[in-house]
């Protein structure tokens, strides 16, 4: 067992874990933050995307041990004081989800896209940038709309 400490959604956490614990397991099993999902074994579906030190990563392909000292944000950490993050709001407003299983990873990736590519995103860019997130329900049509709308809404007013 090894010790890890990190900040998750603004709160300091630490635990003794088996070194083979993946970040997603640490979040789901140790912290009961079950909004982050696992949809594949090969780092392709993106249901597990969270932010580590401000960057989107696949928590199913990251050891919790390597996040020692890091700041992690999950889907549960986006809304503040009851107010949804603009990207969450955009997914709801544009029907960017159906079964909801890929949605947390989609939203975390979408915010990362905006952080890297800005607030004015064309359809082509959004589709390319979503390469690491698979959705089986929506055909992506409304996800693309959601990301574009969310990007605009995230722009400083």
């Amino acid at each position: 067992m090894i010790s890890v400490s990190m900040t998750v959604n603004g709160k300091a956490v630490s635990a003794k874990i088996d070194p083979r614990t993946l970040l997603v397991q640490f979040l789901r099993e140790n912290l009961l933050l079950t909004g982050t999902h696992v949809g594949c074994d090969t780092s392709q579906c993106g249901a597990c995307v969270v932010h580590v030190d401000g960057k989107a990563i696949k928590s199913c392909t990251t050891l919790a041990a390597t996040c020692d000292g890091a700041s992690v944000v999950t889907i549960e950490g986006l809304a503040h004081d009851g107010a949804l993050h603009p990207m969450q709001e955009a997914f709801r407003e544009n029907h960017g989800l159906q079964c909801g299983f890929c949605t947390p990873g989609m939203i975390m990736s979408a915010i990362d896209i905006v952080n890297r590519k800005g607030h004015d995103l064309d359809e082509h860019t959004i589709r390319e940038e979503l390469e690491g997130n698979i959705c089986r329900c929506t055909g992506y049509h409304n996800i693309v709309k959601s990301v574009a709308a969310g990007a605009h809404a995230m722009a400083p007013k």
């Binding site: 933050l33 079950t34 982050t36 696992v38 889907i75 997914f91 709801r92 909801g100 947390p104």
Partner: peptide, 21 residues
């Protein structure tokens, strides 16, 4: 109408089988 179920899904509060312990 915007979906009633979405709030829990977009905030990570959905309850899928594997989320239950």
């Amino acid at each position: 109408v915007r979906r009633k179920e979405d709030f829990r899904f977009i905030t990570g509060k959905g309850q899928y089988t594997d989320d239950i312990n």
